[in-house]
Design a protein around this nucleic acid. Structure first.
Lengths: 223, 223
DNA sequence: AATCTATAACTGTTATAACAGTTATAGAAA
DNA sequence: TTTCTATAACTGTTATAACAGTTATAGATT
């Protein structure tokens, strides 16, 4: 699953109770079973996950860090609300990060191997029709392409921020699950972005990415 | 103090033990008493702060979220290390956020009151000589100007991300406490950025901000 | 019937103690 | 002196129980 947490455990490490609680709550949020805005009381989550209150608290903190949960002092936690303000907020952060990523890549230059890898992914992505169904292959490819670019910058902060906004975006799509409208491909949009990077044109790459994001935001809102 | 946490409590709320632990550890990190890279064991922090282990865990999570502490599964927490990679990483995130902020403001347009407020702050800032001393008024003004712009975007994610990179920057300055070299003003740099915003020139505003940040990074490294 | 009140069932917070694992140290064997 | 081993002192993790505060409900009073 491409929504796997970034704060992964060491490979030969047994998962802690907090890990288990995290994964259970995580899944239930992204499946819609725990709806946006729903209160997540510690004791309820404790019963739900089968662990005691303390690891639940840690799990909720992780989810808050990832942006799927919001907490208020002396009040508790809830699944993040999908208000217009929140959506705008995350889109602004996404734009900041994605634009910085492509600019950095255009300035650094890609290795031949990196370029081929991204080229391959961009071609497959641009050939895949975009639908609003859950589990549509488009979204998995889309996530992987954008994350791969972030990885190539070598900046952990950018990678993590992008991961978090992607999670939010995924939540948004699942909750607002709409009929599969405009199931068409996006032309060669991602290949064009990559072209600007390869041509070492930071301004052009950033502009192409920004246009891509804003169009995407508009179509989200209009459908 | 301009390093006060963003995750503030409600006004008439008594601080929790986790709040107290957070503030004590926070101060000790930013004063250098707890040095970058130093292990922060839960029991030691518990003795240090006078609260039990559980609120200490929460305090460390908050500090991790703010980027002052890094944790590893089944290992524990330490004050964030000031490696070249970490420094580059935060600078990249700063650039992404700051550039997005000025671009947004240039696209939205400022109200007359906002414009006057920023003008006032920019003039004061640009007239203040920059030194590397701790408690130099330059840094307080600098922080407040940049944060005020972020506030005017209305985007919580950008505000918080900027707050966090500012904390890291502050830690960096304090730890690498250098003699007060190049104690000169920066000309009218911030006023120029503001000018681009007021002129509703997103590309120009972003470029001016990016140049500002990169020059600032270079002078940090070279001195 | 409407309103006040007292009780019961929640809430987040946190101190304590115990479990399991790692690291360091000290003493014995080579 | 060096090496192995056993013990002691740590480490993060977490279950339990208790405290204080809020909310909702049910019963009594007006």
């Amino acid at each position: 699953m491409y929504t796997k947490t970034l704060t992964s455990r060491t490979k030969n490490d047994i998962p802690t109770s907090a890990d288990r609680a995290y994964e259970i709550i995580f899944e239930k949020i992204l499946s819609g079973e725990l709806a946006p805005g729903e209160k997540l009381s510690i004791r309820t989550m404790s019963r739900l996950t089968g662990v005691s209150m303390i690891p639940v608290i840690e799990a909720l903190h992780r989810l808050e860090y990832e942006g799927l949960v919001e907490s208020f002092p002396r009040w508790g936690s809830r699944v993040v609300s999908l208000t217009p303000e929140t959506v705008r907020d995350r889109n602004m952060l996404r734009e900041a990060v994605e634009c910085q990523v492509v600019r950095l890549l255009a300035e650094m230059g890609l290795s031949k191997e990196q370029e081929h890898q991204l080229r391959f992914m961009a071609e497959e992505l641009d050939a895949t029709p975009r639908t609003d169904e859950r589990n549509s292959p488009f979204w998995k490819l889309h996530y992987e392409f954008h994350m791969k670019m972030a990885e190539y910058t070598g900046c952990q902060s950018l990678i993590r921020a992008l991961h978090n906004v992607n999670l939010f975006h995924l939540l948004q799509r699942i909750v607002l699950l709409k009929p599969a409208l405009h199931a068409k491909t996006l032309g060669d949009l991602h290949q064009k972005i990559l072209g600007k990077i390869v041509a070492k044109d930071p301004d052009g790459a950033e502009k192409a990415m920004r246009d891509h994001i804003r169009v995407s935001v508009l179509t989200q809102q209009s459908t």
